[in-house]
Structures are given as C-alpha cells and as structure tokens.
C-alpha cells in the first residue's frame, strides 16, 4: 500500500520537521519515500504544510491531492485539508488548537489534544511529536522504533538536549492511541 500523507499547521509548529521524520522513518523501513513542503514568501508564521509519500514502489507523484491520512495542527488546516482525505482515511486533529468536531463522517478521526499532552511531557513545543506518534500508531505507517531512530539521526549535536523530550512526546502520542 502507498501512504499519501498531508501534514499541516501554522508556521513554527514544526509541521515540516514532523514530515521529514516520517519520511526518514519510512526510509529506515526500506520503503520508497518523498517529502514535499509547501513554501511561501513568509519566513515565520503563515501556513505550513507538507506531503509525505511512503510505499513499496518508487514514488510516482510527490504531490498529494487525495491523502490516505492527514495530521492537522490548527483550525485553518483542518478546514483546508479535511476535504482532501480519502474516505476511510485517518485524520489526526490537534484539538488544542482546532475544533473537535469534524464535518465528515467517513473518516477515522483522532481527536488529540497535542499541545496539552506535550505540556504534560514537559515541553509544549513538542506537540508535533505527540501528533506524529499518534498518527504512526493510528495508521501503522511506520514503527515507533524507526521513528525514534529517525529522530536521533535528524537531531544535530547542538539540539541533543531536546532529544529526550521529543522521544517522550512521540511515545506519549502512541500511548494516547493505545488508550483510545
């Protein structure tokens, strides 16, 4: 199966980074992957989204129009991208910043208070990691050990001090799904 994933939020939420970790983890599983960011003129704030494709075959189009799954980190992203998820697809909604109610009834919606959970693990900024952990668990797209390894690989020496917190946040997202 080919996973076509959209991740969206506002600038600064680490949405693009979340996507690169997912792609990297996919690569660690021996899959073919691509990651494509939206890019705008603004350097801070604004909207941010990326498309990640993970599959067994060479990636055909890195552009995703009909996603098999999506993570939306705020209200505007929910509005914009919920219509782009295929029926039956997984939609992780960060209910800390987006309404819990989703108009569509044909999706597997995961209502995840990512910011609150991140704060509980010690750092509110790792809401993206919580969401990624939950998305991976909900879809089975990549294994947690590969996500953790991707995180370790992608964390430069100067950010080592953030590693443990991000690991906790990834696992917290996974745990939330276990409870669900």
């Amino acid at each position: 199966m080919t996973h076509e994933v959209i991740m969206a939020g506002h600038g600064g939420q680490g949405v693009l980074y979340m996507g690169t970790l997912l792609a990297r983890a996919g690569m660690l599983e021996g899959k073919e992957v691509s990651w494509l960011p939206s890019y705008g003129a603004e350097q801070r704030g604004g909207t941010a989204n990326c498309a990640v494709v993970i599959g067994d075959e060479a990636v055909v189009s890195p552009v995703v129009y009909e996603a098999t799954g999506a993570v939306v980190m705020n209200g505007p992203s929910l509005e914009k991208f919920a219509p782009h998820v295929r029926p039956g697809g997984v939609l992780v909604v960060n209910t800390s910043l987006a309404p819990e109610r989703v108009e569509r009834g044909d999706l597997r919606v995961v209502a995840l208070p990512a910011n609150r959970l991140a704060e509980e693990t010690g750092d509110g900024r790792s809401a993206n990691m919580v969401a990624l952990g939950a998305f991976a668990a909900a879809t089975g797209i990549v294994r947690m050990d590969n996500l953790l390894e991707a995180l370790r690989q992608a964390t430069p020496a100067r950010r080592r001090h953030l590693l443990a917190g991000n690991e906790r946040a990834l696992r917290r997202g996974e745990e939330w799904m276990g409870k669900d």
Partner: peptide, 10 residues
C-alpha cells in the same frame, strides 16, 4: 522546478 528543488527523496 520548485517541486524538485524543495522536495526530499532518498
């Protein structure tokens, strides 16, 4: 093009 420049692949 902008897609090829910005995208990541193995």
């Amino acid at each position: 093009d902008g897609i090829l420049g910005q995208m990541m692949e193995p």
